[in-house]
Computed example of a mutant assay.
Amino acid sequence: MTQSTAPTHLRIHQFAGLKPGPRLLVSAAVHGNEVAGVGAIERVMRLLDEGSLTLLQGALTMIPIVNPLAHRLKRREGDRNLNRNLRPTPIPQDFEDRIANQLCPWLAASDVLLDLHSFNNPGPAFAMLGPRDNNGDLEPFRHQAAESALALAVGTGRIVEGWLSTYALGLKRRADKASDGTRRMALQQDPHYGVGTTEYMRSQGGYGITLECGQHEDPNGPEVAFNAILRTLMLLGMVAAGSAGVQAADPKRPVELLQLYEVIDREHADDRFERPWASFDAVAEGERIGTRADGTPVLAPAGGRIVFPNSKAEPGNEWFYLAKPSDRALT
């Protein structure tokens, strides 16, 4: 697609309550083929427009299609992965840089983010939350309690933590490799490459979660996304409890909390999985997950679960993650 035929604007909608309150940003299609949240956002906007849903306070910003180029092409990326190395760029080099220059100020102007995604392999919806409160260098944070409450409120039976710290391990390995001189490799070796929407949000003083609404084609994904939007609005006091027929998630439901601890890149196009994996399949210590192109086995270093296995990953990109039970207390 030539630059002249690429989308030339980002569609953003805002509903401003007449009383002060939280500033919530809801986004979808950061990856263009992850569309569960697109229709859900449109549905919420229709309810607000027709008066079936009433905004009691605060400001609700909604971006149904964050990456219109990737969405038009019906694929994950336009020129590159928008949800990596997300930050303003004085001299944009690609379409995603231009989107980031528009998106980042809206993130910085918000208090809370609900970012709606989906994934390749079959599996149930789950929420991803950020770090615990800390003053460290990687991702200092002070909204652990509020973000944990948000992750619980959207209603999934599984919550995952540890994204950026795990991603940093992969970045360190990539940095030790020789660059091929391409911009893609330079971005992948950049220390900021693990920063996406929620990480940028936290860097600007807010908090937020990523909600993975299930597999891309899961017919229940749009309903998961819609319920999550309404539950987030209810949690923040921006709409009345039970609005649009959506009830708060059961706070006593069983929730599995996992912590990512390892990311493994695909190194060669002939690297292959031992079997078709789905997110959160159990793996035993020493179990063979895959085989490198040269025949070297890829073994699980410990028992746990595999997350985001991607048999179509490009060499140099994430092939799969590993997770273990977390000792974090959410309440």
Rank of each mutant, 00 (worst) to 15 (best):
D115R: 04
V255Q: 11
E139N: 10
Y193C: 10
L10M: 02
L330G: 07
D94A: 11
T8Y: 11
L187C: 13
P131C: 10
R173L: 10
L82D: 00
A70P: 06
Y207D: 03
G170R: 11
M238Y: 02
S52W: 01
G242S: 12
H13D: 12
F95P: 00
V44R: 14
A269E: 13
D79H: 09
L152A: 11
T197E: 08
V35T: 13
Q188N: 12
R266P: 00
R183A: 08
S311G: 13
F126W: 15
V44F: 13
A70G: 12
L114C: 02
V66K: 08
R132H: 04
F308V: 04
A300R: 08
G155M: 13
S279Y: 02
Q189N: 00
L233Q: 04
G17H: 01
E287F: 13
L152C: 15
A145I: 06
L230A: 08
D180L: 02
L113D: 00
P301K: 11
L10S: 01
S148T: 06
F15V: 10
L233A: 01
F119Y: 05
A225F: 03
G37R: 09
G290N: 06
L258K: 14
I99V: 14
T54D: 07
V307Q: 00
T54G: 08
G237E: 01
L164P: 00
L56S: 05
V26E: 00
D176S: 12
V224N: 09
A153S: 11
E34S: 04
A241E: 10
W277C: 01
C104K: 03
G286Y: 10
Y193L: 04
H31L: 08
R76V: 02
A282Y: 00
N101C: 04
G162L: 13
I159Q: 04
L55H: 01
Q215F: 00
Y167Q: 08
E223T: 07
N227W: 04
A125W: 14
R305F: 15
M238S: 00
D190M: 10
R272W: 04
H268S: 05
P276M: 15
G37C: 10
A228I: 01
D111W: 05
D271F: 15
V298T: 04
L25F: 03
S110Q: 02
Y200R: 12
A248R: 14
N310H: 06
N317H: 14
L53W: 06
A36T: 05
N67D: 06
R272S: 15
P92W: 11
S179C: 04
G304Q: 10
V160L: 12
S52L: 06
E287K: 13
N85D: 08
A249V: 07
I209E: 02
L103P: 00
R72T: 14
P131R: 04
L230G: 02
V26K: 07
T331N: 15
L114G: 01
E223M: 08
I12N: 00
P254A: 11
A109P: 05
P191V: 08
L73H: 06
D79K: 05
V283D: 01
I91L: 12
C213A: 07
A300T: 05
G130I: 09
M1E: 05
A329L: 10
I91Q: 11
D281T: 12
R72L: 12
A16N: 11
V154G: 14
P325I: 11
L86A: 05
L330W: 15
L233W: 01
L129I: 10
